[in-house]
């Protein structure tokens, strides 16, 4: 049997109260949201907090709201909430797809977007789409407020810039410019309950339906200590007319924009090849969506 170690448990009612508790900066404290990472790790013994602060009762950190051009996602919003949101489906279908690829229906009912970010797993499913979409992460402590982009949030496996006394409160997205399309493909062994062998999120924005690529993002996941942008591949796309050849060229460049390792889920060579395969596919699908033809598979 695996047992949970003993710990103290706090269930603050308000955000200030929660931030107040965290402000003593005790290093043995952990915030808990859905618990799908934290509880597993505590049972395994890889984390052993003496105090747990639950976000369960906090008001205003769960849900998706739209104010003009900005869509705000509370950090306690679950993957299932995201997957069933009309706003997300309409404005950011790629995020819906990423949320639907996370775990299983049961896990999605608990797993929160804040937890998915804070846990900083190299293969986490939401960060690649969030990076591709240019999301901003709002962080608060008792006395401070800051907004960062996910590109700088992650430092390494399980490591981020999140302070001990800090809570992720919100993830915000600006609606995308016209002629933009995006896609996320996760390669796993099974059809569900998979940590990615490789995953790629791509977004492109065209000048016009038959114009050049004005903006592009390619995010590679599970092939580096954090999700990384394939900068040389992105560079190759800018100002060019989209074509299969162009996407193939970018995909080949992407293979060298990452540093895959061989582990229990897959070999480094295979992963590199899959970066190419998935980059081509996500770009092609993003392009199709950008032209208004809807996202493909």
């Amino acid at each position: 049997m695996l047992f949970l170690p003993r710990f103290d448990y706090e269930e603050p009612r308000t955000l200030p109260e929660a931030l107040d508790i965290l402000s003593d900066l005790r290093s043995d404290t952990k915030v808990i949201a859905g618990g799908t990472d934290l509880i597993v790790n505590m049972k395994k013994g890889s984390v052993d907090p003496a105090r747990i602060v639950s976000l369960k009762r906090l008001k205003g950190i769960r849900g998706i709201t739209r104010k003009k051009e900005i869509v705000a996602i509370g950090s306690y919003t679950t993957a299932a909430d995201i997957a069933r949101s009309d706003v997300i489906a309409r404005s950011f279908p790629v995020l819906r797809k990423a949320a639907l690829s996370l775990g299983s229906p049961l896990i999605r009912n608990r797993a929160t977007i804040g937890g998915n970010i804070a846990t900083a797993r190299p293969a986490a499913d939401l960060p690649p789409a969030l990076i591709a979409l240019g999301a901003r992460i709002k962080l608060r402590t008792k006395g401070t407020n800051r907004t960062v982009i996910p590109d700088v949030f992650f430092i390494g496996p399980g490591r981020s810039i999140l302070g001990k006394d800090e809570i992720i409160t919100e993830i915000s997205l600006s609606t995308l410019p016209p002629f933009t399309g995006a896609d996320y493909i996760k390669l796993g062994h099974r059809a569900a309950l998979e940590i990615a062998i490789v995953a790629v999120a791509s977004r492109i924005t065209l000048d016009s339906p038959d114009g050049v690529i004005r903006d592009a993002r390619i995010v590679l996941s599970a092939v580096a200590p954090t999700a990384v942008r394939a900068l040389s591949a992105e560079g190759a796309l800018l100002g060019e007319y989209p074509s299969d050849e162009l996407f193939a060229k970018a995909a080949s460049l992407a293979m060298n924009d990452c540093s895959p390792v061989s582990d229990i889920r897959g070999g480094a060579d295979y992963r590199r090849d899959m970066v190419r395969a998935l980059t081509i596919r996500t770009l092609a699908n993003a392009y199709r969506e950008a032209c208004g033809q809807g996202v493909g598979l």
């Binding site: 299983s104 062994h189 099974r190 059809a191 569900a192 309950l193």
Partner: peptide
């Protein structure tokens, strides 16, 4: 398609969980 009990060089099972030892899900 999926199942394989794997060992490290010290004879320890490295995927002794139903997360990393993959039996098919209903979607498979």
């Amino acid at each position: 398609l999926f199942e394989e009990v794997k060992f490290d060089g010290g004879g320890r099972v490295i995927n002794a969980s139903l997360g990393e030892y993959r039996i098919p899900t209903s979607l498979d």
